[in-house]
Design a protein around this nucleic acid. Structure first.
Length: 463
RNA sequence: UCCAUGGUAGCUCAAUGGUGGAGCAUCCGGCUGUUAACCGGAGGGUUGGAGGUUCGAGUCCUCUCCAUGGAGCCA
C-alpha cells in the first residue's frame, strides 16, 4: 500500500472515510490502558497530529504500549471519522511497525518547555509544536517573497557570499582566509602578506548584497537578492544574529516613493500568503504565542502605512511630553525608544521614516536638494522595531565622489560602483528586509534565535 | 560591549544562615474512549565553577562562566 500523509488526511478526510491507509511518522504522545491505547502521530507534513487507536488484537500490543516518545513507526489501518471528538478522524490500526526506537531519556516532554531550554537541543526542537509551526511559516514566507517578486518580473540575483570589498560599512565583517593562522606569511615590514592568501587579497563574508544588486538593477531594471549575510558584531539582543537572511530588492528608474510602495506591497503580500497557506500554524501563534497577533497582522494588511519625515518625527517626539532617556534633537539618530514611541504610540501601525540627516546615513544615499538630508527610509513596525532600511541611491557621479571623499573613504575601492554612474546611470532605489525580523513579526516570536533553524550568535555555533 | 536579573532533580520552580522539596517527566503496577488522560508506588541532587566568611552556606562576600531582559550597533 502506498503511504499517505497526515496533511492529506486532514484536508480530505471525508474522502478517506473507512478507507485503508498507511502512515509513517514519529510518536508525539502515547496513552494506553489495559487493552487499548492512543498514539498522537506526527509525520512532519502537517502541524496537527493524527490519532492512532491500537488495541490488544495487535500481536505486538504489549510492545507498542511501551514505546517511548519520538519512536518512528509505520501504521496501516482504517480511517474512522469522529465528528464528535476533538479531532475530525482517527486511524484504527491493523498493523504498527516500529521503524526506529527512541529512548525514555528523550528530552522533549509532552509539556511546555522554555525556549531557552529548547535552544540547547536545536537538533530536536523542530519536533515540537512551536518550532514545527515556525519553520513551516519560514519556508512559506520565503516562497511568498520569491513569488511576489517573480510575479512582478523581478530577476533573482545571487550576490556573492565571499566578498573582496569591505566598503559598505554595514558592520564588522568575518574574515575569510586559508592562511595558516599559526604561521602567517609576513611582508618585509612585518604586515600579514595577504597576497599569499587564497584570493590574493583580504576577503570577508558579505554584510550586504546591495552593491551587487545595484549592478544588476542597472541592467535588468528590477532585481532582488535573497540570501545569507553575516555580521561579526558583538550584539547580544533578541533581534540580532551573526548569520541572517536578507532580501534586498533594487529598482531602476525609480525614486524613494516607488521604493516605499514596493516595501509596503511586499509586506502585505507575505502576510496574506502565510495567513492563507498556514492557517493552523497561524492560529497556534495567535492562541499560544501572542494573542494580539491577528489584530496586528490584519491591521497591517488593511491599513496604509504611515509616512513621516525625520524632521517631522523629531518635532512629534519633542512635543510628545514624553521623557526619553536620550534627549531628542535634530541631528541625532533615532533610538529604539524613539522608534517604538513613533510606531506603537503615535501611529499604531507600520510607519516609514524618511529623509534622515546625511551625517547619520551611508554614503550611497541620494542627497536631497536641501543639502542636509538624504532620501533614506526606515520602516518601523510595532513590537519589532526597524524591519526595513532603504534609500534612493545617489546616481550623480560628482555628488557621489564628493560624498565618498567627505567621509574619508578611498575612491579607488569603489571604481566599479562609480562606473555604474558613468555608463548610463539612472535614479534607482532599494531596501533591505531582515528575513528573520519578518518571521518574528509574522509569528509573534520574540527572539531571533527562535526563528532561524540553527542560530549563530556570539559564542554560540554548536549545531 | 555596558546595565539589571537569574543559574537548585531530565524539565519548570520552591527552600528565614540550621535535616535540599513539589509538580511534571522516568521506572513499576492498575485502569475498556483518552486528548498535556487518570489512580497508586518507587528511584532520582558535587545547589554552574573556583576561592572566602562562619560552629554551620543553596542562602553572605570576591572572582569567573553561562543564560535571560534592556541599551548600543543594525536588518
Amino acid at each position: 500500500m502506498e503511504s499517505t500523509t497526515i496533511k492529506k488526511l486532514y484536508r480530505e478526510h471525508e474522502n478517506y472515510a473507512d478507507k485503508q491507509v498507511k502512515l509513517s511518522g514519529w510518536i508525539r504522545t502515547l496513552r494506553s490502558s489495559k487493552s487499548f491505547g492512543f498514539i498522537e502521530l506526527n509525520d512532519g507534513t502537517f502541524f496537527k497530529n493524527a490519532q492512532i487507536v491500537f488495541d490488544e488484537a495487535l500481536s505486538n500490543f504489549k510492545e507498542i504500549e511501551k514505546l517511548p516518545i519520538s519512536t518512528s513507526i509505520t501504521v496501516e489501518g482504517k480511517v474512522v471519522l469522529t465528528p464528535n471528538a476533538k479531532q475530525p478522524f482517527e486511524i484504527k490500526a491493523d498493523n504498527v511497525i516500529v521503524e526506529g526506537t527512541s529512548s525514555s531519556d528523550y528530552p522533549l516532554q509532552k509539556k511546555k518547555h522554555s525556549f531557552e531550554y529548547l535552544r540547547t537541543i536545536a537538533h530536536l526542537r523542530p519536533r515540537s509544536n512551536t518550532f514545527s509551526a515556525v519553520f513551516r511559516v519560514r519556508s512559506l514566507a520565503a516562497f511568498a517573497i520569491h513569488k511576489f517578486f517573480q510575479e512582478r518580473g523581478f530577476v533573482y540575483v545571487n550576490s556573492p557570499i565571499i566578498t573582496g570589498s569591505d566598503c559598505e560599512g554595514a558592520g564588522q565583517m568575518f574574515r575569510v582566509t586559508t592562511l595558516d593562522l599559526d604561521n602567517l606569511p609576513r611582508t618585509q615590514d612585518g604586515q600579514i602578506d595577504v597576497k599569499e592568501d587564497f584570493f590574493g587579497k583580504t576577503t570577508s563574508l558579505t554584510v550586504s548584497g546591495q552593491l551587487e544588486a545595484e549592478v544588476f538593477a542597472l541592467s535588468f531594471r528590477n532585481v532582488y537578492t535573497f540570501g545569507p549575510t553575516f555580521r561579526a558584531e558583538n550584539s547580544n539582543t533578541p533581534r540580532h544574529a551573526a548569520e541572517f537572511w536578507m532580501i534586498e530588492p533594487e529598482i531602476a528608474f525609480a525614486e524613494l516613493k516607488d521604493d516605499m510602495e514596493l516595501a509596503e506591497d511586499m509586506i502585505k503580500y507575505i502576510i496574506n500568503y502565510v495567513m492563507e497557506n498556514a492557517p493552523e500554524e497561524m492560529e497556534f501563534f495567535n492562541n499560544f504565542i501572542d494573542n494580539t497577533l491577528f489584530d496586528k497582522l490584519n491591521n497591517v494588511v488593511n491599513s496604509e502605512f504611515g509616512h513621516v519625515t525625520y524632521t517631522e518625527a523629531i518635532e512629534i517626539l519633542k512635543k510628545s511630553g514624553q521623557q526619553f532617556e536620550y534627549p531628542v534633537e535634530w541631528g541625532i539618530d533615532l533610538q529604539t525608544e524613539h522608534e517604538r514611541y513613533l510606531t506603537e504610540k503615535v501611529f499604531k501601525k507600520p510607519v516609514f521614516v524618511t529623509d534622515y540627516p546625511k551625517e547619520i546615513k551611508a554614503f550611497y544615499m541620494r542627497l536631497n536638494d536641501d543639502n542636509k538630508t538624504v532620501a533614506a527610509m526606515d520602516l518601523l513596525v510595532p513590537g519589532v522595531g526597524e524591519i526595513i532600511g532603504g534609500s534612493q541611491r545617489e546616481e550623480r557621479l560628482d555628488v557621489l565622489e564628493r560624498r565618498i571623499k567627505e567621509l574619508g573613504m578611498d575612491i579607488n575601492d569603489y571604481w566599479w560602483y562609480l562606473e555604474l554612474r558613468k555608463y548610463g546611470g539612472t535614479k534607482h532605489a532599494g531596501f533591505g528586509l531582515g528575513f528573520e525580523r519578518m518571521i518574528m513579526y509574522l509569528t509573534g516570536m520574540s527572539n531571533i534565535r527562535d526563528v532561524i533553524p540553527f542560530p549563530r550568535t556570539p559564542g554560540n555555533a554548536e549545531f
